[in-house]
């Protein structure tokens, strides 16, 4: 039973790649909430404070859902 549990746990272990995307979407929600409340674009620190995370972590997470990296690069290169 212990082994099975371990197997399940290991196979369900959440990868960083997924957790980063989750954090990023939450950051975008926090940004929208703060924008609606204050009428201006919040800073990274304000978003981080809202989420109770270090601002570096917010920045890292947001990069995971970054739009086109290079706006003018062909997508298929």
């Amino acid at each position: 039973i212990g082994e099975i549990r371990r197997y399940l746990r290991d196979n369900n272990a959440i990868r960083v790649s997924r957790s980063l995307r989750d954090t990023a979407y939450k950051a975008l929600q926090a940004r929208e909430k703060l924008t609606n409340a204050s009428g201006k674009d919040p800073t990274v620190a304000e978003i981080a404070k809202e989420m109770d995370l270090p601002r570096e972590d917010v920045v890292f997470a947001l990069d995971a859902i970054a739009e086109p990296v290079s706006l003018f690069e062909p997508i298929y290169h």
Partner: peptide, 8 residues
């Protein structure tokens, strides 16, 4: 993260 580790 390039090795795609778990969160833990």
């Amino acid at each position: 993260a390039q090795l795609n580790p778990t969160i833990e």
